[in-house]
Design a binder for these strands. Structure first.
Lengths: 129, 129
DNA sequence: CCACTTACTTTATAACATAAAGCTTATTTG
DNA sequence: CAAATAAGCTTTATGTTATAAAGTAAGTGG
């Protein structure tokens, strides 16, 4: 049943992979309209949702934008650093940090399901020499 | 100079403080229109921005919503746990975790300026008994 | 091959956010 | 103290992001 959507998901992922920087859903839409003039926002959001759920795409909440996962495995929660100067986003993994986070929240019985960890700042290239 | 806005900021903060759960900017707007029928979105966003900058209000990126700071001091970056069942948000502080985060990102020369740490999940009250 | 189920797409609209211009209040200057 | 100037809040208008609901086509079982 899940065959029709796969083509669209592949197209959306392709667009995201071709860009080093985050794209909004409407950026992706505009790009795909070149090939498929008739597609509409929900088609993009639908594909983005499926890709996000599978870990192939990350939504950057603080930018309202999306980026292809840069890792080989897509199972882990990730830490995103975002340069407010050049827009570069880097992805990192730190299981011990997530454990610590779960530990802190677990004290009150909170059961984590999804982590949003985004750090805005200035990357090495843009920072003071 | 900065006297006119203070009234509006106090009103906005008052609304947020009266509610235990996150409110969207438009939720706040609707509530304040009862008293001031003429106010418009930018007035709210303007007040929210000032309050956020001073740490009295936090924007929850993953909910596109705002909540009054629950702490006494407003200087620290905070960790927000969000129950997807009842909507309850709790705020926590963990300097060691932030240090670890800065350490990880500092390895590549990234200089953090603002942290977004939100954990979605299920709180103790809503979780499996 | 036809009826049924599933889920993707389309249409339409809702929710969130901000640019630019205008106005009001505070401050500076003569 | 009055007029000029500066600062920033508010209004108007619009742009961007996201989704509800209905429609349609693809896959599935009889």
């Amino acid at each position: 049943m899940t065959k029709r959507g796969e083509k669209m998901q592949a197209d959306v992922l392709g667009v995201l992979r071709r860009h080093p920087h985050p794209l909004s859903a409407y950026d992706v839409l505009r790009e795909l309209r070149a090939a498929h003039p008739k597609i509409a926002p929900p088609t993009i959001y639908n594909a983005l949702e499926a890709l996000t759920k599978r870990g192939h795409v990350h939504r950057i909440e603080s930018l309202k934008a999306y980026i292809a996962c840069q890792c080989d495995s897509h199972e882990h929660a990730s830490i995103l650093s975002i340069c407010d100067d050049c827009g570069k986003v880097e992805e990192r993994v730190a299981p011990d940090l997530l454990d610590r986070l779960s530990g802190i929240l677990g004290e009150t019985g909170f059961a984590p399901q999804r982590h949003v960890i985004e750090v805005r700042g200035v990357c090495a290239a843009c920072g003071p020499g």
